[in-house]
Amino acid sequence: MSDLKAQITAAMKDAMRAKDKARLGTVRLILSDIKRIEVDERIELDDERVLQVLDKMVKQRRDSIAQYLAAERPELADKEQQELEVIKTFLPQPLSDSEINEILDQAIAETGAASMADMGKVMGVIKPKLQGRADMGQVSKLVKAKL
């Protein structure tokens, strides 16, 4: 079992003991997503893949919050925000803008990217380094600006 999955499982047990229903529900959602992928693909997820699952869940929550606020449903947006905060506790420490720019510059130099045609190469190099530590949508915009 990956370290991150074990940490999430331990958090579920802690939430059960503390009778924290909101946190418990979110942690169970995370574990069910992980389990679904493991069953569908018949594999044991490693930390990198668990981070991808968490990253996807964060993106989904952000999209939902934006839609709920646009539809003037703040109570639903608040629920999504609470889930987002719980999910973020399992992600690694986010990188600062200067650290992200440094990684981008290294990747551009490493791949020899000169135009937008090389964006896929650059993203392929930086995605594993930034997964779960930066919003990939924002990173994509930064890469476009640099190329």
Rank of each mutant, 00 (worst) to 15 (best):
L54T: 01
G25I: 00
R36H: 09
E75P: 02
A11N: 06
K35A: 15
E41F: 05
L69K: 09
K146S: 01
Q52V: 02
G124H: 12
L31F: 03
V58E: 15
L76W: 08
V139Y: 09
E44M: 12
T111A: 13
Q52D: 09
M123H: 04
R133S: 03
G124D: 07
L147D: 05
R28K: 12
D63Q: 11
E110Y: 06
E41I: 00
S32E: 15
I103S: 00
E48L: 02
K141A: 13
A117C: 10
K88T: 04
V143D: 11
A71Y: 03
D20I: 04
E80S: 07
K5R: 10
V143L: 10
P94R: 05
A71Q: 14
K127W: 06
G112V: 09
L51N: 09
A66G: 06
A145I: 01
K129G: 04
I8A: 05
R28V: 04
S98V: 11
L24K: 11
M16Q: 15
K35E: 15
D63R: 06
I87D: 14
T89K: 14
K127A: 05
M57I: 07
V58R: 14
D97C: 01
K19T: 08
E48W: 05
K141I: 02
E44N: 08
L69N: 13
E110P: 00
K127M: 04
I126R: 08
E102F: 04
I126E: 04
P128Y: 04
E85G: 02
M119G: 04
M12H: 07
Q106G: 11
A70F: 01
I108K: 03
A117T: 14
A18D: 14
D46R: 03
E83Y: 10
I100G: 04
A134F: 08
E75G: 00
I8Y: 10
L130G: 10
I37T: 11
R73Y: 11
D46F: 00
E48R: 11
Q60H: 12
V50D: 02
A66S: 13
L4V: 05
M1V: 13
A117N: 15
P92Y: 09
V50I: 09
V143C: 10
E110H: 13
R42M: 11
D3S: 11
D78Y: 13
M1R: 11
V58Q: 13
S2W: 06
R42V: 14
K59S: 15
K13V: 12
E72I: 05
Q131A: 02
D46Y: 02
E99Q: 15
D135R: 03
E110N: 09
R23E: 14
D63H: 07
I108L: 03
L45Y: 08
K127V: 01
R28E: 15
K144G: 10
A107W: 03
M116T: 11
